[in-house]
């Protein structure tokens, strides 16, 4: 390919080739419900921490799928595990368990 001398900065590009399938499968085995999110945004809308600091479970999951796992952890860093998001999730996801599982799997370097 011809190199035109400019590329996107890596942080603003999604590169699915970087997706870590093994880690993802580890997450799925801990909490299979990561697969069934419909990206409705209800969890983010009601998040008690999100009032103050950017916090979003929906975005964290998207970041995982887009091989941006550091961003995912960042989106959940302020989570207090209050469980409010679990009350509104229309897919009935155990969001607290999902958040803990994401943190466990992706904090290991």
């Amino acid at each position: 390919m011809v190199d035109f001398g400019f590329t996107l900065v890596p942080s603003s590009r999604i590169n699915l080739d970087l997706f870590d399938k093994e880690k993802y499968e580890e997450l799925v085995s801990m909490e299979p419900d990561v697969r069934i999110c419909m990206a409705c945004g209800s969890c983010t809308a009601v998040c008690t921490a999100g009032k103050f600091v950017h916090t979003s479970l929906r975005e964290a999951m998207e970041d995982i799928f887009n091989a941006k796992t550091d961003n995912a952890l960042e989106s959940l860093r302020a989570c207090q595990l209050c469980g409010k998001c679990a009350m509104v999730c229309p897919r009935g996801i155990n969001t607290r368990h999902l958040i803990m599982s994401i943190t466990k799997v992706y904090s290991k370097k």
């Binding site: 990206a39 409705c40 945004g41 209800s42 969890c43 983010t44 809308a45 009601v46 929906r58 509104v88």
Partner: peptide, 18 residues
């Protein structure tokens, strides 16, 4: 995601602009 009522009877509606 949720709806609440203000003192004046209007509604406060929350969602995420995804």
């Amino acid at each position: 995601a949720e709806v609440s009522e203000n003192y004046d009877g209007t509604l406060l509606v929350k969602a995420e602009d995804t």
